[in-house]
Simulated assay, not measured.
Amino acid sequence: MERRLDGTTNRLGSGAARRNGSASRERELSMARYPLLLGLAAIVTWGLFGSPAARPVSAQDRVGGLVVRAIAAAEADEFAAAEQDLNLALAIDPLRHSVRYWRGRVRFCQGKIELSVVDFDRYWTEFPDLRSRQWERGIALYYAGRFDDGAAQFADYQTYHDADVENAAWRYLCEAQRDGVDRASRALMPVGPDRRIPMMRLHELYGGRCTPDEVMAEVAKLADGSPERRSAEFYAHLYLGLWYESRGEQETALEHLKRAAEEFPIRHYMGRVAEVHYRRAAERDAAERSDPGR
């Protein structure tokens, strides 16, 4: 799926969460399911009832306004500012757990992996009906070294959306850390059809049925310089880099990860994942080169 910074996708999943609980819980769950509604509600309220000088400002209004501002800051890559606003929102209303989803994302984009996991875990706990959708949590768990939990999250996501090669790839990456690449490859989840080029080729690669050259040959079929080609280049290099890294081929992995993060960056959450991963991998490589005995 196309993973935009605002948390929306351009493809609907195959499952639909069932809602339970009280009316107030239902409203909170609705906001969690569609996080942008929180911001839109604040904007509409502001327009209908005027400025704070014209009426008392409720805690709900203040939280909504802070989330709107945080979303705008995140879209401008101002993740620290976004986190500050989300911290304020939770200070005003600690039980507005849907805000933790946003804070988990902006924390991850800053490389604050452990803090990101804290937020995603709390969000996951508070909204059991939405657990199958939490792919961001799965990615954060991978970086936190919680490979069993990560693999379980991606297996759960498969019940919500079963045509996403990225989900299968991340489960493979978790299982490769735990079981080795051969077992992870044999256990690769079937998916499809993922119509984005070169996602099905990448699925074949992770399953041991094609080569990196065949992946890039698929990308080359797209018109040079087109938006589709640029997106395909990003995803190809990101997942080739992750695949090489899982096999211990660090130098080749870094080449692909750098191209994904710097040469073909995209304005989606996965673009930030690529940046975080490349930065961590480059720092680790530099440390190992400076101290080969580590």
Rank of each mutant, 00 (worst) to 15 (best):
E2D: 09
T9A: 08
R11A: 14
R11V: 13
R11N: 07
R11K: 09
R19M: 11
R27P: 02
A32K: 03
P35I: 03
G39Y: 00
L40F: 15
A42D: 08
V44W: 14
W46K: 15
G47N: 10
L48N: 15
S51F: 02
P52V: 05
R55I: 00
R55L: 01
P56H: 07
V57I: 02
S58W: 01
A59C: 05
V68Q: 03
R69D: 04
A73Y: 00
A74G: 09
D77H: 11
E78N: 04
A81L: 05
Q84L: 03
D85N: 13
L88A: 12
L88V: 09
A89F: 03
R96N: 14
R96D: 07
R103F: 00
R105G: 05
R107N: 08
F108H: 07
F108N: 07
C109S: 13
Q110E: 10
G111W: 01
V117C: 13
Y123F: 13
E126A: 15
R133V: 01
W135E: 12
Y143G: 06
F147K: 11
D149W: 02
G150Q: 08
D156V: 04
Q158Y: 10
T159I: 07
T159A: 15
T159M: 11
A163I: 08
N167K: 04
A168Q: 15
Y172C: 10
E175A: 05
D179V: 06
V181T: 14
A184C: 02
S185M: 10
A187C: 04
M189L: 14
P190C: 08
I197Q: 10
P198K: 13
M200C: 10
H203V: 03
Y206T: 02
R209Q: 14
C210M: 09
E214S: 07
E214V: 06
V215C: 04
A220K: 12
K221M: 04
G225F: 05
E228F: 06
Y239A: 13
S246R: 04
G248A: 03
T252P: 01
T252C: 08
E255T: 05
H256W: 06
K258H: 10
R259Q: 14
A260F: 06
F264T: 08
I266P: 00
I266F: 01
I266H: 07
R267K: 13
H268C: 09
G271Y: 04
A274W: 00
H277R: 12
H277N: 06
A287R: 04
R294Q: 10
